[in-house]
Design a protein around this nucleic acid. Structure first.
Lengths: 188, 188
DNA sequence: GTCTATAAACCGATAGAC
DNA sequence: GTCTATCGGTTTATAGAC
């Protein structure tokens, strides 16, 4: 039951954001009253927290950010981008909530500030390792490469959500990475 | 008075999005009742439309997308990015509303779909002209360059809004452009 | 566990006085 | 032009029955 609620909550928050997404809508989708729903999760914001944590586990299972094989990490990014194209809800919730949470008084503000700092740090390490192995093209700064990869990823999602015919997210990311690497990514 | 309302509305929609931003909050900021506010704008969504149109005029005045000097267009992009860093509200409203409007039933959905299609088209033309003049590096596709520039721009804004110390938007865009051009941009 | 009922607040918009 | 008063709707969350 908790699982079904989490799935419905992801859909609703993805479509309407946290502030405008309502418990009523979530409750309706799982065929339950609002009070029944709040028996499983103490409050709306606690429900949001669990939805976000759940999504992160999924992402981190596909992209191995801790490993020492930088090429494998980047291949994981492409794999996740390709998988996400088949699950629009997963794309929407990050796109919509990260933007909504840029204001400091949003309940998920700290979450996203820390998430992005963590992603920048681990991706910088990934590019540093690739640079040490001579796999990064001349003049590419690892930190800038990390910032730019995350930026492109997020930006492509906005354009793709607005018009799914306008681009292929995984192809675009792969193309970008091949312009800053000296080797081809495995499986691309 | 209309001007003061538009400024306040931009602030509120930027901070809370359209759906969660309230006329009450806007009215309070200009020191007026909600009814008084609705004398100047017939409805909330009409107010949003004018706020968005107002912002576009400002952007298009700085970035000359129609001209035939591609380098000047791209220099305008950098100039706008640098100016935006001094006006967070202008960044926020686009970031927050474009994400909120990805869902098809949002009142600004059509606006953003068309805006992005228009930006992609004019930027593609810009890069095609640069390519014809030999100013685009080997293997760079004009259409992909347009998609990527817009993606980077949007993505940088999210990261910047979450943590203003994490990056310099104009520097990052300039750096990216110099990696795909064969010449330096004027004034960079 | 799930329900109904309800509290307490907020929302956009309108009517009508001044 | 700007106000007060108000309508009908929404929201999250709690109390208490079953």
């Amino acid at each position: 039951m908790r699982r079904r609620i989490l799935d419905a909550a992801l859909e609703v928050f993805a479509q309407s954001g946290y502030r405008s997404g309502s418990l009523r809508e979530i409750a309706t989708r799982v065929g339950m009253s609002e009070a029944g729903l709040l028996h499983h999760f103490p409050s709306k914001i606690e429900l949001l927290r669990e939805v976000l944590a759940h999504r992160d586990v999924r992402a981190d299972r596909i992209v191995d950010r801790g490993g020492d094989d930088g090429l494998a990490t980047l291949a994981g990014v492409i794999e996740l981008a390709r998988l996400n194209a088949t699950e629009p809800g997963a794309v929407e919730i990050y796109c919509v909530l990260s933007a909504e949470a840029t204001t400091p008084d949003h309940p998920a503000h700290e979450f996203f500030v820390e998430r992005y700092a963590s992603l920048r740090a681990s991706m910088t390490t990934t590019f540093e390792r690739l640079q040490a192995d001579g796999r990064l093209r001349e003049g590419v700064d690892p930190r800038k490469a990390a910032v730019r990869l995350l930026a492109i990823w997020d930006g492509l999602q906005v354009q793709w959500l607005l018009d799914r015919e306008s681009l292929d997210m995984a192809d675009e990311i792969a193309d970008h990475l091949h312009r800053i690497l000296t080797v081809r990514l495995p499986g691309c």
